[in-house]
Design a protein around this nucleic acid. Sequence first.
RNA 1: GCCCUGGUAGUGUAGCGGCCUAUCAUGAAGCCCUGUCGAGGCUUCGACUCGGGUUCAAAUCCCGACCAGGGCGCCA
Length: 609
Amino acid sequence: MMRTHTCGELRSGDIGKDVTIAGWIRFSRDHGGVLFFDVADTYGITQAVYDPESITADGYAELGDILKTFSRESVIKVIGTVRNRVPGTEDGRNPTGEVEVLIKTAELLNSSKPLPFEVAEQKGSMLPSEDLRLKYRYLDLRRHVMAENLRFRHRVVTSLRTALNSRGFTEIETPMLVRSTPEGARDFIVPSRSSPGDFYALPQSPQMYKQMLMVGGMDRYFQLARCFRDEDSRSDRQPEFTQIDMEMSFVDVSDIQETIEFMLSEMWKNVYGEELKTPFPRVSFYDAMHKYGTDAPDIRYGLELHDVTEIVRNANYEIFKRILSKNGKVECVNVKAEYTKGGSEEGGVGRNEVDRLIEWAKSQGMGGLTWMRMTPEGLQSNIVKYFPDEVKDALVAEMDAKEGDLLLYLAGSEIAALKAGGELRRKLAADLGLLEGKPHQFVWLVDCPLFQRDSATGQIEAFHHMFVCPENMDLSGEITDIKGLSYDLVLDGSEIGSGSMRCHDPEVQHKILEMIGMSEEKIQDEFGFFLEALSFGAPPHGGIALGVDRLISLLLGCESIRDVIAFPKNKKFQSLVDGAPASVEEEKLSELQLLSLAGEDFDDSDFEE
RNA sequence: GCCCUGGUAGUGUAGCGGCCUAUCAUGAAGCCCUGUCGAGGCUUCGACUCGGGUUCAAAUCCCGACCAGGGCGCCA
């Protein structure tokens, strides 16, 4: 047995025991005679002490000389006796701080070179640049917070699995080498050696497989599914990511929502020991866009948007008149007095702060931002003179303006004004600290349209994806008015999941593929197998997929999902720890009958325009 | 494809035309010290991303490249 205890478990109750511990030398302190070693593993830190006053056996002096040569982060095994520390020198910050291990013998298991950055908890937390952390990810994981993040992730995922298991779900793996399909994100492509010139794709999601599992009668499926999308990175997007993917047969929307609420509340109990309030609030897509300016609303604070277009139509304010003449909209946010501190400059929204918001609005692509402050004399600002009294009265009534409130207006095209309004809400909430101490809030986003028009081409496309079941089967009429039986799960203003009832009727599925502009030939070529599957008695079914990385990083308050992934890619999709992607030997390319990019004759100037 | 921010010893930073032979901390190497614990003391080591330009003078200003991050587009 290499160790009897981890570095996190010895307590005063263990005093007198002969123990063996092993770990990394996180710190060592040489006092000229007595030596201290903080032996660390992922469970904790235990102090080991070399004490020539306590042990005078032959050879102990030589042991001291050897111990002095051990470098930091070297791995050692210590055999010794647990004893309490000299009274007054206990370390209250450390659970093992009452005791220490008196070293009888010690063995160097492996030495360590000086690390490229500090792994130990440091003054002023000197976190190195992220590319260095990613290159030496295995060292970054020695840092306590990183290890805790991964363990938290494990606890969450285990709880989710247990909850689904208790509801009769079967965990089933679907293929990683799949057929590339049109629409959606760019695929990662894998060349086939046995079918030269053909390619697999890595799955963007197991969507059609899980639906075929329902056709196969599996009834309730889930999977922790790795998904791949070759689209540009963000702080909450990685080229490969994990979803908890599920599908259920013979259910309706509320069954699926209830299942998710159950699963998450079970997880909440396990992880936080608290009840999660269910059911989650439902917000319609329309309300989300018009009150919160986003399809992923954060309802933990107010600052709702109000459409005041019709009210300000009668003002003589040139900027608004110009925008309204082009069918624009004016959105207004009331920053309540308690947030603005009545316009005082300290921590509130004073005149300087308003100027900064105007600059910020310009950076968001808006022309600017108009403001008015409510005073005992009514609305005041540099431009109220253009607003007749009845307009001002209507604004005060619509916005429920009280003394000290600050009204902010964004004007532009409807989508621009709403989007900027949504961003303004986020910015104000962050700047004013409105989220401090607020508990997490899940929201269902419902009543989404089935289709939308591409803003550039005008082409009809699926709002979520092409497998969403329409709310009713009448697909005539204005196409963007058709609703889908879909539901997005939003946590604290971030989308973490998207689900729907699916088209189990092959005719409905076929019709939708047509409506998004696919030719019959393409439908048969790309989706023929799937339509055929639906034609053999596909049960009514639906499901959802939740982004595990996002969920975990939101719960932990991480700035990036990279902090909850053991070996993430950087912004350019490189794996810094092993240097992927990398060139491969010409022989391998040749086997795959791919154009040799490694050949000596290859001249890439041929490919320049 | 576009926009923004940043690149100074191993690490994190200060400096932002001449006070720079570049600050501080940490680290590493060496020495001292028998109760520290993110020990302490002393000594030493170690850096301006690259290429142009402006200037009497560039870490500092300008241009370009490269690298990193954030965002827009994109992400069924």
